[in-house]
């Protein structure tokens, strides 16, 4: 174990960047454009978005670590299938846990839990990072990208639920009435358009707009 002496600290500058970069500069949803399907479809209520983010974070970190541990013994030609099987096994665990503990949420997430298997963020990170890096770096990369995904999901779900149905559903606190009662009694009206699926696309586009105007180097030519 002679390499122990020159091992870099657990949270070196490079490792910290692995976590902070995906929050902004290389955000998996808005910049790399990965994992859009689920990001758009589970954002009608805050609690769905939060549970989905945790599920993806879990699969991403563990998948990254497992594939990174096996990176030297996976034959290149069949790596996609090996990765899919690892991810699918993790997703089965997530899906059974969700069914056991938060049944309502798992019902409203329906097929999207299963679709974590083909979530491009996961396959993308396995291919691009876990296959060529050590387990600890891969785990941090998983945390970073999972949080980047969660950030977009929660922001979109916040506006979608607030403007669409006037409530905010937070796990543990239940449905919090913000604008809903106002909508029943006075001039204010909920924006029904926000509940429809297409509005999350527009919200993500606005998110990208804000992000890229603050961070000019991300603008596409």
């Amino acid at each position: 174990m002679s390499e122990v002496a020159e091992r870099e600290p657990l949270f070196s500058k490079k490792n910290k960047k692995l976590i902070t970069d995906p929050l902004n500069d290389t955000n998996p949803v808005t910049i790399q454009v990965l994992g859009i399907c689920s990001a758009l479809a589970v954002t009608v209520q805050m609690d769905n978005a939060i549970v989905m983010s945790i599920a993806v974070l879990f699969v991403l970190v563990l998948g990254n670590v497992i594939v990174s541990l096996m990176r030297n013994i996976i034959p290149g030609k069949i790596r996609i299938i090996v990765q899919l099987v690892v991810v699918a096994a993790l997703v089965i665990i997530v899906s059974e846990v969700l069914k056991a503990y938060v049944y309502d949420v798992s019902k409203s997430l329906s097929v999207f839990v299963g679709l974590i298997i083909t979530n491009c963020i996961i396959m993308g990170r396995l291919e691009a990072f876990a296959l060529s890096n050590k387990p600890w770096a891969a785990a941090l990369d998983g945390v970073g990208n999972g949080l980047g995904y969660a950030l977009v999901l929660v922001v979109v779900a916040f506006f979608k639920e607030l403007l669409g149905s006037g409530t905010l559903t937070i796990p543990g606190l239940g449905k919090i009435d913000v604008l809903a009662s106002l909508a029943e009694s006075s001039w204010y009206d909920n924006n029904g358009l926000m509940v429809l699926p297409p509005s999350s696309l527009v919200l993500v586009a606005i998110y990208i707009w804000v992000q890229k105007s603050r961070n000019k180097k991300l603008i596409e030519q």
Binding site: T30, L201, A205, I208, V210, K212, E220, Q221
Partner: peptide, 9 residues
Amino acid sequence: PLRGVGMAF
């Protein structure tokens, strides 16, 4: 800032 992906969304 909307060029490319943003507009596609």
